[in-house]
Amino acid sequence: MRTWRGLVGLTAFFAFWQGLTMVGIIDPFMMPSPISVIEALWEMALDGSLWINLGASLQRVLVGYAAACVVGVSLGLLCGWWRVVADFVRPVVDALRPIPPLAWIPITILWFGIGDMASYFLVFLGAVFPTFIATYTAVRGLDRNQMNAALCLGAGPRLLFADVLIPASLPIILPGLRIALGIGWACVVTAELIAAQSGLGYLIQQSRMLFQIQNVVAGMVAIGLVGLLMSLLLERLERRVNAWAPSERA
């Protein structure tokens, strides 16, 4: 039912857009109609350029995001568990966090040149903070009584970590990881606009220079759809893992 509503919403959006171009409110040169965008997507799918660039972007986002998850979750666990560590780390994080990934691009190019490494780094920067904050918040908010219950039942560090700390934290960590992936995906495109020779961002940039506006929008649509798909997949995973949690039962 909800999937159905989502499809109706998307269809209505595209229909509205198509309508605007057909009655001439939108100049098709400035904003091509959805049908010509779909045609452009289809052509890029047939000649393979869509897949090559999509693959390059996905590979970059996965590497950067994986690194962000490892660092963000570990640091979040450490800071959540030991207040002293948080006292040292949090000011640094809170000072770095407001710097948008875009502002990191010049120095990223200086450090890594133009290539995959620059993209990994920018994705990492975009995704690591929400991952950290979610994990930190989750561990901070753990129910003291549940911890005590586990301890008095004889739980050692390993059982406490694997059977209590982690599952109790997941209802807050997983939505954070989902948001971080969305940000990472946006960052990879940003990075590719400037600091890469392939990927969906690069495709958009190249098409703009060639005045292939329908390809620019086709690239944007591809980014949006892939982002939507990622979000849906992670949300489904969340619902399974956190089925017990109040937040998933509302």
């Binding site: 009584n145 219950a149 059982l159």
Partner: peptide
């Protein structure tokens, strides 16, 4: 330690485990 176990007012059950797994926890430990 497990020679002094506690029953809490707010139960403090592990919400992500079935009742069976909750009861087994101290034995698993």
């Amino acid at each position: 330690g497990p020679s002094r176990t506690v029953v809490f007012q707010d139960y403090a059950l592990f919400g992500w485990m079935t009742i069976q797994k909750n009861v087994e926890f101290g034995l698993k430990a």
